[in-house]
Design a protein around this nucleic acid. Sequence first.
DNA 1: GACTATACGGAGCGCTGTTCCGTTTGGCAA
DNA 2: TTGCCAAACGGAACAGCGCTCCGTATAGTC
Lengths: 195, 195
Amino acid sequence: MDTSEKQPVRAKRADARRNEKTLLDAAAATFVASGVDAPVREIAAKAGVGMGTIYRHFPTRADIIVAVYRHQVDACADAGPALLADSTSPHTALARWLDMFVDFLVTKHGLAAALRNDQTGFETLHAYFVERLVPVCAELLDAAIAAGEIRADIGAYELMRGIGNLCIFADQDPHYDARRLTGLLVTGLLLARTA
Amino acid sequence: MDTSEKQPVRAKRADARRNEKTLLDAAAATFVASGVDAPVREIAAKAGVGMGTIYRHFPTRADIIVAVYRHQVDACADAGPALLADSTSPHTALARWLDMFVDFLVTKHGLAAALRNDQTGFETLHAYFVERLVPVCAELLDAAIAAGEIRADIGAYELMRGIGNLCIFADQDPHYDARRLTGLLVTGLLLARTA
DNA sequence: GACTATACGGAGCGCTGTTCCGTTTGGCAA
DNA sequence: TTGCCAAACGGAACAGCGCTCCGTATAGTC
């Protein structure tokens, strides 16, 4: 392996670094204002750069989105083990963690839909979310199974995929509450209940 | 009310009626081949008509879809009361009926996503499905509540919307089974269980 | 056969994402 | 300081989409 990261031959130019930062800020602002589906031109315009620039820094839409939300995804991933330690039962921890996940998805207009839209080059985005969050979910799930609380016939990926789906367009319909549906799903995992 | 339906002044022209039929067949075939998202041009081409024709018969994409699937939706709606009569319990009937609904959505590539895509003029489609199916779901739900089988804090609309969401992109991912997730959700409705 | 409401075809508009290439500029070496 | 060139930039241009508009063709009637 040739060392860690940078300095292959020369460092990134100062204006490039500046533009990358500008673009990230503009993208974040645009996502809040117009949703994750916002036209690339809109982000470029807000950042005051050309189309070429945005595509050089982020070859695909998914790269922008991943970059914008990366630390939030990481925070969500980190919260898993913490919840497991703090909660009264693994199933409670799982439920709480999934609530966090739902909050994250729902507050980003259209993120859930974009995540699912694999066909148009969102594999990268999908891959990052899966890679980062599925192991955490699996840990919580396994703990709950080991504790004899829930059934063992569902995988972490499938569960997260389902919950992700429940969040699609959740922000566009006042008569729909993704958290309630998620709660139902998580309750359905339980092996037995007495009330 | 001025009578029932047709004959306002003159009947539809023969070629128009012929084209409508041709278009419906072409649309159905195209949906199977390329999914519900298929370009309008593709349907027009397959039917051998111009863009103008297709838009005159079906002012919006949703109208084509509704027309193509109308009788299937109706069949699904009709199945509700029948299941209620035949099943051992209202909850079982509900579960079975929702399975039918899931099968219907999953086999039509992209239908579920289109249904949710309210922003681009799919309100009509959404409205037709809601108007036709929600009352049926409500009937099943109420029966199960009356029987003391399930919790009473969820509406038919929200439940169907959730299940519809679970079906989005279900056909594109071999590791995902919309039926299993739906089952979990329906199980979560139960008030108590003993195994 | 003539006339007209009805229906048709497809060019064209506006909006996407993405590419391509001529132009500008940061950073280093002389 | 100056000169150089790889790196970075900007935006015109292309392709594909939904949808509209209007000149043309024709079914049905008199």
